[in-house]
Each structure stands twice: as C-alpha cells, then as structure tokens.
Amino acid sequence: MDVLYFAWVRERIGVPRDTIETDAATVNDLIEELRARGEEYQFAFEDIRALRVALDQELSDFDASLSGVKEVAFFPPMTGGE
C-alpha cells in the first residue's frame, strides 16, 4: 500500500510517501501502525482532528475500511482558491 503525505504532514514525517505492508483494517488502525514507526510519525499524527484522509484519491473518514485500498493520503485541511 502507498501512503502519501502532504504539506506539514509531509514535513513532520520527512518523506513524501511510504510503501508499506499492512493488515490494518481501518484508517485508524493504520495510523496506530504508523505512530509506532517513530517520533516523526507521532508528531504528524498527534491530533488527527487536524488531519484529513483520502483513500484512492477520494476524501474519506478515519473509521473507513482499507479493504481493497491501494493509496492512502494524509494531509491538513485544504487551502486552495484565492
């Protein structure tokens, strides 16, 4: 599974993406696994209310299932437009 990070999530973790093997059933389970990778990840995921998640490039929820998902992305609320 590819896990992508954007904006300050990417900066806190220090890499734009990880490719991982995981049995995580939900996004929340995946976040627990990522937190165990080290303090950069704990810092990035310290408050998930400040984060958004996309599954296969569609906005989703933290309790969503990862079944069949190939790409997960974590990022802060979006700030496009003018």
């Binding site: 954007f6 904006a7 300050w8 996309a54 906005l59 992305a73 990022f75 802060p76 609320p77 979006m78 700030t79 496009g80 437009g81 003018e82």
Partner: peptide, 23 residues
C-alpha cells in the same frame, strides 16, 4: 468548493519565516 475540497495547500514565505496557511 475549490477552497476546501480540492487538494491544494498554501505556504507563505516571509522574511520572518515560512508558515502554512490554515483553513
């Protein structure tokens, strides 16, 4: 919708440092 549903993130760079624009 572009403002809060399209995946863009802005960062401002000034003499006093960089900061991500908050939603």
């Amino acid at each position: 919708y572009l403002k809060s549903r399209a995946p863009f993130w802005k960062k401002e760079r000034t003499a006093s440092g960089d900061s991500w624009v908050e939603a």
